[in-house]
Nucleic acid binder design. Structure first.
Length: 468
RNA sequence: GGCGCUAUCGUCUAACGGUUAGGACAGAGCCCUCUCAAGGCUUAAAUAGGGGUUCGAUUCCCCUUAGCGCUACCA
């Protein structure tokens, strides 16, 4: 049984890179009939916040993919400690009683592997000092043989090897008794029977340590697949401090993205179905997803200060917006609008205007005139209305439409063209001016479609009103 | 510094060692047209550099360069 896990640590909002990792895990599981485990890796009590937990759930819920099982690492401390005990008893770990090195001293150029004198402590002395309450860090006893090689096969990056002598004696337990990420993560992966680990490439080199832990713990070694990172246009890792809200998935929700279109966009960063397809349904993504399509180089999220949204994401959102089933779209646009009396006309209108929108927000902003009783006339549209005679003729058209027995696009068009001909103006003048009068916008669907969207009463009222 | 990973248009990407190096977004132009989109057509735009291997390298190998990651009692 295939089991994957997504294990965010609640120290910030849901990062778009994390979201993509979650999506790839989800797709892989769905593709192969597996189980998705969501696990909060909250062993760092100093940095965890409830706000972060909330924001991660916010983001995940918005993506609307779901998961099958949920765990919190902080509930599983006993398991982690038992795992540490197992490794210590096997002689594969040792207690390090050295005092914590000051942060400034941790010189990254030193090539530090372990603290002197601690590996060699006899079990008796180690036990005694621990019993006496002397604080210690539990470290993995990395093999120091010249030729010892740690290896694993990565689903994306292929065969990976590293000399054990290049791996430091990393910590398993902190001096406060809490497990480190490496220990907690591996112990949980074993206990939760995770068969496939899919995560960011920032863990690629950590995996050598994890292989050592898995070996020490026994049981089946999960398979690994690492994902290229999402980076900023300047090549740097995306960070909130440096790049702002573009790194948080909730930003895209708040920008009026359709959840699925954002999922679709994220999938295209670092993965390709290899057949030039871009707009894909959820099922198409599931069917096409595999490690073969994953790239090995980092992908840039294309944003700038002037346009904080990746233009391709915006384009893709527009594509989904105008092609998705109308009935799925209606409930997503309705909440931002006042109640619409005529359900049938609402459907018709949404369908008409969505053709040129790229965000869910557009319905209440650019499309305000279609859905609200009050709306402003866009300043850039005014000159269409201020053509010679336009306002007067529009008002006359309104009066004529009051008289017609039946209100339809064809009849409105006939009336408008007849009036234009009688007064010797081009029909285009009245057509464009009426779009402005009816919606406040110079741009939009065919003007006669607009007549239907707005409806007889409001059409007449708005046409007559422009004379003032 | 050590170790690891990566390198195709501005961006996302495609190309069993043999292609005029393809597609998409963004840009420019044209068509369509009641406006704006959409759509169609056209255009500009890339194999980091140097060595090999090969009849032939975007593709395989090496070096250089650049970027990223790990190198914590963070995850």
């Amino acid at each position: 049984m295939l089991r994957v896990r997504f294990a965010p640590s609640p120290t910030g909002y849901l990062h778009i890179g994390s979201a993509r990792t979650f999506i790839f895990n989800w797709l892989y599981a769905r593709r192969h009939g597996g189980t998705v485990v969501l696990r909060l890796d909250d062993t760092d009590v100093e940095r965890n916040t409830q706000a972060s937990v909330d924001s991660i759930f916010d983001g995940l819920n918005w993506l609307n993919l779901g998961w099958d099982e949920f765990y919190r690492q902080s509930d599983r401390l006993a398991l982690h400690r038992a795992a540490a005990e197992t490794i210590l008893r096997k002689g594969l770990a040792y207690r390090d009683f050295t005092e914590a090195r000051a942060a400034e001293e941790s010189d990254v150029t030193s090539g530090w592997l372990f603290n002197p004198g601690m590996r060699e402590l006899t079990p008796e002395e180690s036990d005694r000092r621990a019993q006496d309450g002397e604080p210690f860090v539990l470290r993995y006893r990395v093999p120091r043989g010249e030729k010892h090689v740690v290896a694993f096969a990565d689903g994306v990056f292929g065969k990976q090897t590293k000399l054990a002598q290049d791996i430091e004696d990393f910590a398993l337990l902190r001096s406060n008794g809490m497990p480190t990420y490496h220990l907690a993560s591996c112990a949980d992966d074993v206990d939760l029977k995770i068969t496939q680990i899919i995560r960011g490439q920032d863990h690629l080199t950590n995996t050598f340590k994890h292989v050592l832990i898995f070996e020490a713990l026994g049981g089946d070694m999960p398979k690994f697949a690492h994902l290229p990172l999402l980076i900023a246009p300047d090549g740097a890792k995306l960070s909130k401090r440096k790049h702002g809200p573009v790194v948080s998935v909730t930003t895209y929700r708040d920008a009026g993205f359709l959840p699925h279109s954002y999922v679709n966009f994220l999938c295209l960063l670092g993965w390709s179905p290899k057949n030039d397809r871009e707009q894909m349904s959820r099922q198409e993504l599931i069917d096409a997803f595999g490690f073969e399509g994953i790239n090995r180089s980092n992908a840039v999220v294309n944003f700038s200060e002037e346009s904080p949204i990746d233009p391709k994401a915006q384009w893709l959102n527009g594509q989904h917006l105008r092609t998705m089933p109308l009935d799925e779209l209606l409930p997503l646009v309705a909440p931002s609008l006042p109640p619409q009396e005529d359900a049938e006309r609402f459907r018709f209108t949404v369908d008409a205007v969505r053709q040129r929108f790229t965000s869910l927000h557009d319905f209440a902003t650019r499309g305000r005139g279609y859905f609200f009783a009050d709306f402003e006339i866009d300043p850039s549209a005014l000159d269409k209305l201020n053509q010679p005679q336009a306002r007067v003729l529009l008002a006359q058209l309104g009066e004529r439409l009051e008289q017609i027995p039946e209100f339809s696009e064809a009849i409105c068009e006939a009336e408008l063209r007849k009036l234009a001909e009688e007064r010797g103006v081009k029909p285009g003048l009245l057509i464009n001016a009426s779009r402005v009068a009816l919606t406040g916008q110079a741009v939009g669907p065919s003007a006669f479609v607009v007549f239907s969207c707005v409806g007889r009463e409001r059409v007449i009222e708005r046409l007559k009103r422009v004379r003032a």
